[in-house]
Design a protein around this nucleic acid. Sequence first.
DNA 1: AATATTTTTTAGTTAGGCCTAAAAAAATAA
DNA 2: TTATTTTTTTAGGCCTAACTAAAAAATATT
Lengths: 220, 220
Amino acid sequence: MSTSFAEENYLKIIYRLSEGHDDDISTNAVAELTQTKAASVTDMLRKLAEKGWVHYQKYQGVRLSPAGEKIALGIVRKHRLWEVFLVEKMGFNWDEVHEIAEQLEHIESDSLIEKLDAFLEFPKTDPHGDPIPTKNGVMPELGYLHLSDIKANKRCVLMGVAKDSAVFLQLLTKMQLSLGAALHVQEVNAFDRSISVSIDNAPAVFISHEVAKNILVKLA
Amino acid sequence: MSTSFAEENYLKIIYRLSEGHDDDISTNAVAELTQTKAASVTDMLRKLAEKGWVHYQKYQGVRLSPAGEKIALGIVRKHRLWEVFLVEKMGFNWDEVHEIAEQLEHIESDSLIEKLDAFLEFPKTDPHGDPIPTKNGVMPELGYLHLSDIKANKRCVLMGVAKDSAVFLQLLTKMQLSLGAALHVQEVNAFDRSISVSIDNAPAVFISHEVAKNILVKLA
DNA sequence: AATATTTTTTAGTTAGGCCTAAAAAAATAA
DNA sequence: TTATTTTTTTAGGCCTAACTAAAAAATATT
């Protein structure tokens, strides 16, 4: 069964909203990310359920079926591979590529994606550090830690950001963070859990717990 | 004013049908290439005329306005640049890329196309030998000749094919023609104007006048 | 528990892009 | 030049994916 542009977008967004927990997703949450109204979402969820791509019962929220997840992972795979292409080959910055990748992710050609993957030398992550699903529809577990979980006096390396909203990326850019940066957690505030971190041996900066939760690292 | 996927397709197809003459294009001709019915074409032509992209009077056929031609050339530029990318960078054959380029040509990002152009080292023609419009919306004149116009005993070089239908490309592939091939026109039949041509010094093959009209060459 | 608020669904529309069937105009043939 | 055929347009409808407004269900508050 073939998927329309709109259907692919809904599946991708439900996937994103489902990452990291098992709760069903609310109609409103989907409406916010699709930039549509809740009533439109209700219509589409019923349609997706008829096609067998989501489990949906009215007033109960929605979650992907295995078939829907497979489609969503295919879209995410394409999105992230194109992002690598845009940054590595076309010279865009990592905070400029999202909108273009949103378009490219809907190009339909399996052979193109396989060739692109090879051309990019089979990258494991996109420019934001997010893992690229395999062509069999598996999302690799990178096993990274959140910066908020690092103990005082430990050193680690920046591997990615968990949220890739434009605002968040700007913040990171302003902090001069780039993938691979050496982070040294110097202190953890016992009250608000904010941390002071030295980046590439520069003087330490303060990062709130909320922000630190969205920064992915591995121990050095 | 922004253009929808369907509108861009119509403009591109009207452009293709207009190349090489000044006559207005018939509704039926457009319907055939858009794979729609004549009634649907009538609707769309009225809409395109309202937006100022075509000159259209009912029962009189259609032709592009300057604004419409500019849009069409932008689409053709993107189509042909992506074809170069698919062949040169992704390793597709020149007869496999059309459908994928039909999708990629609608990706909207001026900066992407400029970067792609640079990445491909500013190609002058696509893999079929067709010229790539400039970013200012000018279709370069390559000044090639048609193989059908070459005199007996002259040598020339294959520069492209004027029609890129799948069937035609297959024919050329079967004849083992590839861009840059050395062609030697040995005889021109006085009655049906068919020619015998030796390709890369192999024994001569016969090519009908009709086919030869669609093969672009330059004199060696 | 009863009421108020928020969330979600239903009902009824709309716009884009296509369709078929029938009417009208243009082109061709007798 | 009249009749026939072909081309094109009109009229009316369908489907997708959105919308608003109102109703219904779920959740929160008093």
